[in-house]
Amino acid sequence: MPEWIMHFPESIYLNIKDAVDRFVLYITVHWDGFFDAITTGLRSFLLYINKFVSHIPWWLLIAIVFVLTLKICKKVTKAVLYSLMLFVIGAMGLWSYMNMTIAIVLTSVVLSLLIGFPIGVLISASKHADSVVKPILDMMQTMPAFVYLIPAVMLLGLGNVPAVIATTIYALPPIIRLTNHGIKQVDAEVVEAAEAFGSTKWQMLIKVQIPQALPTIMAGLNQTIMMALSMVVTCSMIGASGLGSEVIIAINRLEIGRGFSAGISVVILAVILDRITQGIYKQKDGETDGKRRSHFKSRKSGQALRFK
């Protein structure tokens, strides 16, 4: 029996590795200016947001969480609980790390929203664009998070900026998908009515489709925030500072307590952000009949568990 029946023949070798390596090398050399510009721009944006976040006094942030929870979830117990949880992060000495993490996540989410929302709108309007974007999204969502780190590092080096890029890309699909989905599932008769009353395409979008889709878009935003948070620890491997780097350091030095307190802080952040943003779209949902979108309930809990 010839060897090649049981083992893949070594003589067949497609050299993709080298091609990709060369491609990346080419880009890093020739597009240097471009990536420098991105790095510089993003760095100052990130710094700005970080400065903003760290200028909020700790008691004010706790108060904001308290008031927001009270307003959105309408439960005093929850408001007290979340404020207390936030207080615990500070008490564990991780407040400034948390600020850095919030800054990275916030920057990534803002970028995801800026990129993803228009794409979502576009593919809801154009079948052509939809057929191009959908497979890319499918691919992105099956890709392990680590894979995004490689090009980010290769092109931009180590640090917070590549972390923001990797996080942005990783967190992009839900906002695109749910913006698209939200706009498409607006009641056909409502859209027809808007058309019958002489709306232009633009008026239709601004005055009818986006407002009607808002609860779903908010659900997408919630998922995007959760995805961004889930990248916190992963991105520390390419030099992102904040709570994630505490976890990585703790792992390297086998400091279980240090790792646990940083890890639990990430979970706390996730729970608070999840509940508050979820509360917002649930509220909106109640205003628009409540019968739609029940299929998102499955994502409601268990989200935070992914970070352990």
């Binding site: 008769e189 409502v190 009515a193 019958a196 009607q212 205003e287």
Partner: peptide
């Protein structure tokens, strides 16, 4: 028939 009103 089903009114086509905007709930928002």
């Amino acid at each position: 028939q089903n009114f086509g009103l905007m709930s928002h």
